[in-house]
């Protein structure tokens, strides 16, 4: 792969990804919390974001898999479950998951930037405690 493409391809992918997050309103914390509020006034829209994304990505990933054998799936461990539960709490509290937080921070929101800084600290903690096992897993 040429050097230009090695930069251009992820740049375009990141841009498209961000535009998708904006169009789908994943960048609106109130919308996210309304999706997670299944017992209240539930707005099911965001289920369709994941549905739409998988409808496009699944055939692509499965096609690629036929051309080259995939990396094996790792085991389900405690870290996976504990980490995901902790992330869900952060997601529910703020209405931000990592992608939308970065996009909104990129747009100049101080609130999202604050969240991204805290998220970076959390990631640094995660990198430090458990990073070695992570790479082995």
């Amino acid at each position: 792969m040429s050097r230009l493409l090695a930069w251009l391809l992820p740049l375009v992918a990141g841009l498209l990804f961000g535009v998708g997050l904006i169009v789908s309103e994943m960048v609106a914390p109130a919308k996210v919390q309304a999706f997670l509020d299944v017992g209240g006034r539930w707005d099911p829209s965001l289920a369709l974001v994941m549905g739409g994304a998988i409808a496009v990505a699944l055939p692509v990933f499965q096609l690629a898999r036929r051309r080259r054998p995939p990396a094996p799936h790792g085991p389900v461990e405690g870290r996976l479950i504990v980490g995901s539960v902790l992330f869900g709490i952060g997601w529910g509290l703020s209405g931000y998951c990592p992608g939308p937080a970065l996009v909104v921070a990129g747009g100049g929101s101080g609130e999202a930037l604050g969240y991204v800084v805290a998220m970076g600290l959390g990631m640094a903690l995660g990198n430090r405690y458990g990073a070695r096992e992570l790479r082995r897993a």
Binding site: G83, G90, W91, L93, S94, A118, M123, G126, N127, G130
Partner: peptide
Amino acid sequence: VLFVAGLLTGYGTRIAR
């Protein structure tokens, strides 16, 4: 709350990969 939420998201997503 925003700060705690960010910390939990960062740490959680790292250990859950």
